[in-house]
Design a protein around this nucleic acid. Structure first.
Lengths: 193, 193, 193, 193
DNA sequence: AATGAATGAGGATTCATTCAT
DNA sequence: CATGAATGAATCCTCATTCAT
């Protein structure tokens, strides 16, 4: 066995690279996170993924196709995380707790996710082709919340999560956890009769 | 005082086309709204503003300078609108009404404002140089809300406005006004004791 | 003898899709007519013919081989038409009539043929490899005309057909049939003694 | 005065090159003649003209603009030559002589002109934008001929010149001058009564 | 025998910026 | 003070061709 750590066949089989497409997509998200959609070009992605420039238009019908695929992968990931978190809650208290965790801990745990979300929203704001992704995202978030809350509460919570997440990211001073807790309490507590 | 309404100094220091700089900035916002930051170049702005290409680097220290000035102008405009709306409210009921109007009517009345906001957030998410603008915006929104609400309520309302506005823009189905009303009620009503 | 009408050998030597090669050639002419030699690539022809890209270099030794085959097919077609038209004439009057018909009716009945002819001439003007086709074309035209006219008259008629056809195609105003008739009369009438 | 033969100002004034545009156009014709329209790219022309690639799209609105300008320059040249030759003829005999000279000597004296003509015809056959050039060319040829011949004769001569020229260029065997002479005689001699 | 995968070269074009005027 | 001219780098994309299967 060679010392370089690659399998013997790797050198000879390099031509056929079955998940190169998938790897380009993931690399593309990294590049977007780091340099923005504006700084994402065939060249930058190809260089980052270690594939020849010609690979880009071979695997994708142009920059737009690649971007859409990349953001489709991104939304799939965040939707999964959201759904798993909410599905784990078995009663109302747990559901409230899950929402708290979503906002304060994991949805945009990384700056990467925040940046990607904004880039996607920016695209969707001008280009309807990206609305299918944001729509699917919103619909799945609401479906996950509606397992535990009524439709109106769901809508409000959904907007709250959005707003608090954005402000947490943009704000220079740290977010007060008590504010988040208070928000969830007020929105989900039963109406005063 | 001169009859034309400009101060004497302005006339002497800025000869040719005194507000060309300002006009470029406003045109730049139009271009961003229409084609995105990515599609905004010296060329496109110069063409849209009807000024020679050389004017751009004469009046601004490069693209970034121009973008920052443009978004500074934008945030000034939306901050003004927000503050005027909130300042007009004289009691709590009117303040609640004002928040409702902000969300359902005027903050992102136009698609233009929505697009510009997302473009700015996207820049700010990656580039700290634009955080001063988003910070000032957030601070002023909160100050305006704090005239009527306590700090915690203000934070929650602020996030709610953000989230509902974004969702209204991205969503394909129209926003239910009752949801907005319910949200404001729950967030601003006194705690159940 | 097999019932399907093909020779036994053909069936055994060409299995899959026996006339794919021929179909590619014909499609290639369509593509050239529509987009020009410059716009004709392996890709465009393969797509138009509905064959995989790899087929192109399998069946032909590169673009040039394909182009040459395509224009060979084209000249064969127009030569046949010309010869059939001239062969049908049995006396001098009929021959004159046939020349008239060639110019006014059928040589470049379609814009397709005109375009293909110019594309071929352009290739032949620079690349000697295509001269064999234009030479064969000219030689056969002359042979067909020489059944009815002396060599000098043939040369002149041949040039006239060429020139009138080109001008008919390029001219924006329609060609006057009387001019064509007059030209044939003058060229083919006996010399004044 | 420096020994290198350039004027002293040349080195310092290199930036301002007032007839660079014209030089690019002429070089473009050379490139087309040598490599065809298909082989004519911004790169090849820029390299041949010794100008940076960026110059091409600075001076021209793209490849099509450049091509059109180049062929406009070309047709202007050949039209001038044609007109000068015909204008020099003072009587009918001289006019006949001039037509003979046009065909046998100078219209496509060089292979360059022949190639350029075919390239232009090919463009015009498919792209109406080039018909203005071929139309102007035909109209001016006819106007020049009509100084000496009636309209019908002019049309026939015009077509003859076209056809004989093309065949002279494509034919491998040399053109017989007597055929040309005979053609002119037959077309221009008075009708037999 | 036939083809999908892959790639490096080259295509037109746009760009921010510099500089001489 | 203001700008038209100019340019080299970078943009996306198409291409003919090679090659492993």
């Amino acid at each position: 066995m060679p010392a370089n750590g690659t399998t013997p066949r790797a050198a000879s089989t390099r031509r056929h690279d079955p998940d190169r497409r998938r790897r380009i997509i993931e690399t593309c998200l990294d590049v977007i996170a780091e340099r923005g959609v504006a700084g994402t070009s065939h060249r930058t992605v190809a260089a980052a993924a270690g594939v020849p420039l010609g690979s880009m238009t071979y695997h994708f019908d142009g920059m737009d196709d690649l971007l859409h695929e990349a953001f489709a992968s991104f939304t799939r990931t965040v939707i999964d995380r959201f759904e798993r978190r909410m599905a784990a809650a078995t009663d109302l208290a747990a559901a409230r707790q899950a929402v708290l965790a979503l906002i304060t801990a994991d949805v945009f745990a990384s700056n990467r996710d925040l940046v990607l979300t904004h880039e996607l929203y920016t695209l969707a704001a001008r280009n309807p082709a990206y609305r299918d992704l944001t729509n699917a995202w919103m619909r799945s978030s609401r479906a996950a919340l509606e397992r535990h809350f009524d439709p109106t509460t769901t809508r409000i919570l959904d907007a709250l999560i959005e707003g608090l997440t954005i402000h947490r990211a943009l704000d220079t001073e740290p977010q007060d956890p008590q504010v988040v807790q208070a928000a969830i309490d007020r929105i989900t507590r039963p109406a005063v009769t």
